Amino acid sequence: MVLRAIGAPLVWEARPAPVPGPGEILVAVEACAVCRTDLHVVDGELPNGRLPIVPGHEIVGRVVARGPGVASPAPGTRVGIPWLGHACGHCPYCAEGRENLCDAPEFTGFTRDGGFATHVVADAAFAFPLAGFEDPVAAAPLMCAGLIGWRSLRRAGEGRRIGLYGFGAAAHLLAQVLVWQGREVYAFTRAGDAGARALALRLGAVWAGGSEERPPELLDAAILFAPVGALVPLALRALRKGGRVVCGGIHMSDIPSFPYEILWEEREILSVANLTRADAVEFLDLAPRAGIRAETSVYPLRRANEALDDLRRGRFQGAAVLVP
């Protein structure tokens, strides 16, 4: 399913199977989750993308061929392919172990073809073996919603009371991590979204309410997954002194002005950019131990446009997953 023009529907195309080059693998896609970032790609809200492009960066599949110089993973191995598709390895950020900030990165489904397809070519060094993950549909959302949630939590710190603004794919996975860790989850949803609130409470949240409501306790940290800048001042008002607001999305509407007094007392606003391979190794080790399970709605690959529209309009809980 190919994006040929910004804002246009994806188009079904038949292409020859891609051939992996040096350092690459060819993967037969079993499942690819649909991320809000895919909407940002379709809507042209991210700079420096490529057209035409096959979107999709929450990919699970089996290795079917290896390019020159690739010793592993072996054919038949189930792997996960995330948003960060390649890092240069030699810029100052890569040298510091911060490859998520690489000066010359490639991104799956944005600058290199992604997983809204039957096959995808990936950098072997940025594909993660998924031994023990028996259900590709359930595993697919872990490759971005799970990983970005995990990185956002690491940025948020060790506080006990954590607010999650926007209770979609990432938040419903992260809530399970927080409950497993013994922390308290406060879920903030769109007004009237009873389904999201019910899901949050079922997953162990101690409170669920609207984004403009004040929680019953001041928060140690708030993580924003909804791409709505107006939530930043609201989250600041819900924080204790020294608390943090973490913006977990790759794109957000403008943050409105707000009084300095709600930032004062050493509150902080932080952003999250992409992920590192170390994040993936940590989270994919933790997820089975914590019993993380994605809530999914499955769509055939040809219905990718429908899945994107349903995500935009909030018609399902959890994550949408495309299956070829």
Rank of each mutant, 00 (worst) to 15 (best):
P16M: 13
R50C: 12
L101C: 06
A156E: 04
R244P: 02
W83R: 10
G132L: 05
G314M: 01
L239C: 12
A28R: 15
P20V: 06
A31S: 03
A304V: 02
E96R: 12
F110Y: 14
D38V: 07
F126M: 11
G157P: 01
A208F: 10
R277Y: 02
D285F: 04
R240P: 08
V321W: 00
P47I: 14
H119Q: 11
R183Q: 14
P22I: 06
A169D: 05
L218V: 11
G157W: 01
L219S: 09
A17Y: 08
V206C: 15
T111D: 05
V41W: 04
P259N: 14
R313E: 03
G89M: 10
V323Q: 01
H90K: 10
G318I: 00
I262H: 12
E261T: 11
T37G: 09
M143H: 00
A124S: 07
L286P: 04
Y260E: 13
G168E: 11
K241G: 14
E184Y: 01
D113A: 09
G80Q: 05
R237D: 13
T276Q: 05
N305F: 02
P324N: 02
F126V: 06
V60Q: 06
G109H: 08
R277H: 00
L311F: 03
V42C: 12
I262P: 11
F258P: 12
A222W: 02
H172K: 04
L51Q: 13
Y93S: 07
S253G: 11
T77Y: 13
A124G: 03
L26G: 05
H86I: 06
V206N: 01
E217T: 05
T108N: 12
P55H: 13
V179R: 15
E96P: 00
W83V: 13
V34P: 02
A131D: 15
V121P: 01
F283Q: 03
V232I: 13
R289E: 15
R313K: 08
H119M: 03
R312I: 01
R237L: 09
E134V: 10
P141E: 02
P47A: 14
G209E: 09
A117T: 04
E30S: 06
G210R: 09
G146R: 07
V29C: 00
V34F: 06
P18D: 09
R303T: 05
L239S: 10
V179N: 04
A200L: 03
E212D: 15
G314L: 01
V42N: 06
L173F: 09
P288L: 04
V272H: 00
G67W: 08
P55C: 12
W180C: 07
L130H: 06
V206S: 14
T296D: 10
R202N: 05
L164R: 01
A226V: 01
C35I: 10
W150M: 07
Y165A: 12
A171Y: 02
N48S: 14
N48I: 05
W207C: 09
W150H: 14
G7D: 08
G115S: 08
R289Q: 15
A287C: 05
K241Y: 13
L218R: 15
Y260L: 15
T111P: 04
W150G: 08
V27C: 03
P16G: 07
E265L: 15
R161M: 00
F128L: 14
P215D: 11
G159A: 04
G44C: 11
A171Q: 11
P256H: 12
F126G: 10
L84C: 12
G76N: 12
R160K: 10
D193A: 11
N274A: 08
W264F: 15
D113T: 05
L101K: 09
P47L: 14
